[in-house]
């Protein structure tokens, strides 16, 4: 048997901001798939309601929002039925908040793997975020059903949804990388996270329309990438709100910034994981 020249690996101390080493991530790309698949499989094997949870969580939130914000508080919904209005925002939001939660625990939960075998650590938060996409798709089907029920026709811009989904994922992965790395070093993140998620929801146009935010603050408001995401979803599906504009651009740039800074921070902290976790 002819063996090709073995790959040479050099192990030495790295200092400061390390290179991203995306080549390694590429070599291990199949592991991203397997870990995502494992996360899904385990989640649905262990919980009684299984796939039902993917629908129930955003759906029940939508019901509560519709009663209290839509009916009692009379929050405007840009001319579409409030349930559809809030559910459209809750789908990407649930994906995002679940991703933060799962990603931030991903490293600590897999400490037995980190201390025993080498693989690009980034795969763990990455797979945690990606597993949420299946829930997203299931919840999305429910949305289509609701649209039929409320007789809301999707706009011709529905084809842009994958872009806004991507924007959600990029944001979630960026923040997820930050949180997962921080969680290894400081377990305080467990206490910070519920507050952070809640806070983030209030500064995103989930329960209310962007049109309620004063014009002059819109661009500052767009610094939250989830603003661009939710606006995009509503625009593409319901035809409300603004067409992609400065808001979308600012949100996308911010998402990209979170993503890249997250990768570098993660990489910088990675070398300590096995000793700290």
């Amino acid at each position: 048997m002819v063996r090709s020249e073995p790959r040479k690996i050099i192990v030495k101390p790295t200092t400061g901001w390390a290179a991203l080493n995306l080549r390694d991530l590429w070599i291990y790309r199949e592991l991203v798939y397997f870990m995502t698949w494992r996360n899904l499989k385990v989640r649905y094997k262990q919980s009684l309601l299984g796939i039902g949870w993917a629908i129930l969580q955003p759906f029940l939130t939508m019901v509560v929002f519709s009663i209290f914000f839509g009916n009692l508080a009379g929050v405007p919904s840009d001319g579409v039925p409030y349930p559809i209005f809030s559910y459209t925002a809750l789908i990407p939001w649930t994906l995002f908040s679940k991703a933060l939660q799962d990603a931030s625990h991903s490293l600590v939960q897999s400490s037995h793997m980190i201390t025993k075998v080498y693989f690009p650590r980034m795969i763990l938060p990455l797979a945690a975020v990606l597993a949420g996409v299946v829930d997203f798709l299931i919840a999305f089907v429910v949305l289509l059903g609701m649209m039929v029920f409320y007789k809301v026709t999707p706009t011709a811009n529905i084809w842009t949804i994958p872009f806004f989904l991507l924007l959600t994922l990029v944001t979630a992965i960026g923040v997820g990388l930050w949180l997962s790395a921080l969680n290894v070093l400081y377990r305080d993140i467990n206490y910070v996270l519920p507050f952070l998620t809640q806070f983030w929801m209030y500064i995103s146009p989930i329960a209310y329309p962007t049109s309620m935010v004063p014009e002059k603050w819109r661009l500052v408001y767009a610094l939250n990438p989830m603003t661009g995401v939710v606006e995009g979803f509503r625009w593409a599906l319901l035809g409300t709100g603004q067409a992609p504009s400065m808001v979308t651009l600012i949100s996308s740039l911010m998402a990209l910034f979170l993503f890249i800074s997250g990768m570098f921070y993660f990489k910088r902290m990675e070398r300590q994981f096995a000793d700290m976790v």
């Binding site: 073995p6 790959r7 040479k8 192990v11």
Partner: peptide, 22 residues
């Protein structure tokens, strides 16, 4: 752990030729 790249050394260099299975 250093040879299987689980943890990084503080000093020195290791050159490994080929895949390490442990």
């Amino acid at each position: 752990k250093i040879l299987s790249r689980v943890t990084e050394p503080t000093r020195g260099v290791v050159e490994i030729y080929g895949r390490v299975g442990s």
